Amino acid sequence: MMLKEIIGIAQEAGEAMLKIYNDAQDVEISRKDDDSPLTKADLASHHIIVDALKELDPETPIISEESGVPAYDERNGWDTFWIVDPLDGTKEFIKKNGEFTVNIALIDDGIPVMGVVYVPDKETLYYAEKGKGSFKQVGTEAPEPIYSTASTSDDELIAMQSRSHGSGKLVEQLKEKGLNVVKTIPAGSSLKFCLVAEGKADIYPRMGPTMEWDVAAGDAVYRYSAREGSHSSPLTYNKEDLKNGSFLIGLKDNVEF
């Protein structure tokens, strides 16, 4: 497939974002129709990624957070498509805490078969491909495989928690569902998937809504971090409404959310 090229595209977009991030004392913010924040970095990354994907793979359609979503009547016929979040964690970008990412994923027959998550401020790359596993690379170091083991609800669990959307009631909510959560780790953007994929946390519960482009690349990194085969995931793609409901990543058990 085109994994090497996709990694290069994500890194180029990340460098453009980082230039804006480092050059501006205050990040200039506008608002989208849903009142979510938008910066010049979102748009710069979007144009780099979409233009590069169109050149690299002109036959495959693209959904990007910043380009609008084609009507379902059109998308319903897509077997394969790219889905992109040019800047995941815009709130973290604005807060300048470094926890923002570039997310690019390839969806085939409803599942992510390739995913790249790049963390520009940390020069850290996570990537995965179906059948080949998940990897982490820091700076110019050699990539290393990452692994995770799906937990059970009886285990003592470390849970990821959204840094910007987290709830102080998360542990209580999870315990009500029979989960023995002993610790939470806050993080921004798709890093939450990646930290579960590399075994630094056991589960990532998401109580609020996300969009498919928020989760696809991180979902791929988690799915293919299994030592054999792939982990199951509750997330699906190219739904009529691209909004996801609540979900839980990292458990063998089926826990309803």
Score class of each variant (00 low, 15 high):
Ala197Phe: 02
Ile9Lys: 03
Gly168Asp: 14
His165Met: 13
Glu144Gln: 14
Ala150Glu: 09
Ser230Val: 11
Val182Tyr: 08
Gly208Glu: 15
Arg227Ser: 15
Gly98Phe: 09
Val102Met: 03
Arg31Gly: 02
Leu195Val: 08
His231Thr: 05
Thr80Met: 09
Glu99Gly: 03
Ile7Ser: 05
His47Ile: 11
Leu191Met: 13
Asn97Ile: 13
Leu179Asp: 02
Asp253Asn: 12
Ala52Gln: 07
Lys54Ser: 07
Gly77Thr: 08
Asp85Arg: 07
His47Val: 14
Tyr204Cys: 00
Ile83Pro: 00
Tyr222Ile: 03
Asn244His: 15
Ala220Ile: 00
Ala52Lys: 13
Tyr237Thr: 05
Glu144Ser: 12
Asp51Trp: 01
Asp88Thr: 08
Ser36Ala: 07
Arg75Trp: 04
Ala71His: 13
Lys239Thr: 12
Ser230Pro: 02
Gly166Asp: 08
Arg75Ser: 06
Pro112Phe: 05
Phe135Ile: 02
Glu59Asp: 15
Gly8His: 08
Ala105Cys: 09
Lys130Cys: 04
Ser45Ala: 15
Val69Arg: 14
Glu59Gly: 10
Glu141Phe: 13
Leu242Asn: 11
Ala105His: 07
Thr152Glu: 10
Gln137Met: 11
Asn22Leu: 14
Asp33Trp: 10
Glu144Gly: 10
Gly68Arg: 09
Met17Glu: 11
Leu56Glu: 00
Gly168Ala: 12
Leu235Glu: 04
Asp214Thr: 04
Val119Ser: 05
Ser189Leu: 04
Ala44Val: 10
Thr101Leu: 08
Glu15Gln: 15
Asp57Lys: 08
Gly89Lys: 01
Leu195Gly: 03
Asn254His: 12
Asp253Thr: 06
Ser36Thr: 15
Leu195Met: 15
Ile49Val: 10
Asp121Met: 12
Ile185Pro: 05
Glu66Val: 02
Ser190Asp: 07
Asp23Trp: 05
Asp154Ala: 15
Gly98Thr: 10
Leu106Arg: 12
Leu53Asp: 01
Ile7Gln: 10
Gly14Lys: 01
Asp33Met: 11
Met114Phe: 03
Gly168Tyr: 11
Lys200Met: 13
